[in-house]
Write a protein that binds this DNA or RNA. Structure first.
Length: 501
RNA sequence: AGUCGCGUGGCCGAGUGGCAAGGCAGAGGUCUGCAAAACCUUUAACGACGGUUCGAAUCCGUCCGUGACGUCCA
């Protein structure tokens, strides 16, 4: 039994075989830190976190590289070479690096809220300008890029002609045919710098007002959109590595261009397996800046957004995402999130109860049918994960186990109905999957605002008791809260404050 | 216009030829001082029309609807 993943490159599920077992190199396109991440961004990071964890569970030694794009991509190639980051920085009157730091911190915070493991290496684009310049020089030397007016462009047509002969045309990943694209690429200003419309920038000359700029053989400028990922993946994972991941919207042009750049430099297809997660939609539409339908992660967590009925805990969102297969679109709705919230709570309560039990299971009065059923459900976890990470089916099986666990708890099923070995297996598999692979947390750990409500409730009860001169009750509340480490303080204005020690 | 994809019960979603997972919501019941939770039972779906097949949600065709890419995008 082995892991199979859907490879976008071959458009089929393939058995996963690392180039150098037990080592696995995985590169995932990270965020552009010119703004806060929204719900849609959460999906690849959670999906590939689960893949990372699962690969380690299978015994692989994984180097997981996920970049931070902190050098600006220009808004629109050829139009007005604007650096996205520096542009906004001017608006906010911040240093570009201050802005980058702010959103990087916010991103890291959200990732930890989701219980995502940090990647092994998290390189920044600005930290790898030298590598990018070296790569561009190499591409020029090989004749697949040309300089024009201080900018450098990749010669897509030449690449396509030469590499089609080698079975690797431009468009191999996305299934596009270059000739058709040339027809459909729209008119842009300043196109005359390029030999062909489909050429993309490797290096862009920086206009005078551009803040982020670096010295290069072609003058002062900044790197193009695609080159950073090629430079950093090559540097840290080698010329050929195992897995390249990202959202489906990056398949073209970003990943296509990465393939072209890296192939010219290293004479190899950079990655064996290209994995793409599908989009999170909202009313059926992709969540994105241009649609104006984004919900930022901090808004998800706080509930502070017109589309949100309530706050949603990070663990709820993580669970919601894992309830679907990563290659399907996933539609956001309050009803769906609320369903996930309740479901997760039910799952975690059953799981946590089970882990505390030491005396269930027997070797005698086992119910063979039930015992077999539990073993089957639990063993299938691995089968489903190996089938292109079908987390949805694993979770479905978990929910077939929940009523069994709860029935044992409520004594509708005798504690000895399962063999002790089955109970151990059940505990172990649930623990491995829930805690280690899916990394779910019970939402009470991140529901402090609800506990605040509980405290307010106690404070009010105490206030009412005091007004009745029922000091027995009021003191009981105060003393017992105090013993728990919550100090109530009566203010002069009649209100009550508290501190948690 | 093109390329790729999708259309499953009230909502979210599994499912690539063999009686349609799971969650949430709904209904009835058990338990409970009352509630909540839990448990049991249960209602309900494959966009349309053709075709291939003993058999199709699943394969093919046409149509309708819808999305992604194409332009910054997870």
């Amino acid at each position: 039994m082995s892991l199979k993943v859907y490879n976008s490159l071959t458009r089929q599920k393939e058995e996963f075989k690392p180039i150098n077992p037990p080592y696995v190199g995985m590169y995932v396109c990270g965020p552009t830190v010119s703004g806060e991440s929204h719900l849609g961004h959460a999906r690849p990071f959670i999906t590939f976190d689960v893949l990372y964890r699962y690969l380690m569970h299978l015994g692989y030694k994984v180097r997981y590289v996920r970049n931070i794009t902190d050098a600006g991509h220009f808004e629109e190639e050829g139009r007005e070479a604007e650096d996205k980051i520096s542009n906004k920085a001017v608006l906010e009157k911040l240093e570009p690096m201050e802005l980058v730091q702010k959103y990087t911190n916010l991103y890291h915070w959200a990732m930890s809220q989701f219980n995502n493991l940090p990647p092994s290496i998290e390189p920044t684009a600005t930290g790898h300008i030298v590598e990018q310049i070296e790569m561009i020089k190499k591409i020029i030397a090989d004749g697949y890029a040309y300089e024009a007016n201080g900018s450098v462009y990749f010669d897509v047509e030449k690449y396509n002609t030469d590499f089609s002969a080698k079975g690797q045309p431009y468009g191999i990943l996305s299934g596009r045919v270059l000739e058709e694209q040339i027809e459909s690429t729209r008119e842009l200003d300043n196109q005359e710098e390029k030999r062909n419309k489909s050429d993309f920038a490797l290096w862009k000359k920086a206009p005078a007002e551009h803040i982020m700029r670096w010295q290069s053989p072609w003058g002062e400028g900044f790197p193009g959109w695609h080159i950073e990922c090629s430079a950093m993946s090559t540097k840290y994972l080698g010329e050929e590595f195992d897995i390249h991941g990202g959202g489906m919207d990056l398949q073209f042009p970003h990943h296509e261009c990465e393939i072209a750049q890296s192939t010219v430099c290293n004479h190899k297809m950079p990655a064996r397996y290209w994995l793409h997660n599908n989009m999170i939609t909202i009313n059926g539409k992709k969540m994105g800046k241009s649609y104006g339908n984004q919900i930022m992660l901090s808004q998800m967590f706080s509930g502070n957004h017109p589309l949100l009925d309530q706050p949603y805990a990070p663990s709820t969102i993580r669970f919601f995402i894992l309830q679907s297969q990563y290659r399907s679109t996933l539609d956001f709705s309050n009803d769906a999130l609320q369903g996930s919230e309740k479901a997760l709570r039910r799952l975690m309560e059953a799981f946590e109860w089970l882990q505390q039990q030491d005396h269930i299971g027997s070797t005698g009065q086992v119910d063979p049918a039930l015992d077999e059923k539990v073993k089957k459900l639990v063993t299938e976890f691995d089968v489903f994960m190996n089938d292109d990470l079908n987390t949805a089916k694993v979770i479905a099986n978990m929910f077939e186990l929940v009523p069994i666990i709860n029935s044992i708890k409520d004594k509708h099923i005798p504690a000895g109905a399962l063999h002790t070995d089955t109970v151990s297996l059940l505990k172990k598999q649930l623990s491995v999957y829930i805690l280690n692979i899916f990394a779910l947390q019970s939402s009470k750990t991140d529901n402090n605002n609800k506990l605040e409500g509980v405290l307010e409730l106690l404070i009010n009860i105490r206030k009412e008791a005091k007004s009745r001169k029922d000091f027995l009750t009021s003191d009981k509340i105060r003393n017992e809260l105090s013993a728990l480490g919550v100090q109530l303080k009566d203010e002069k204005d009649g209100g009550t404050n508290y501190t948690i020690q």
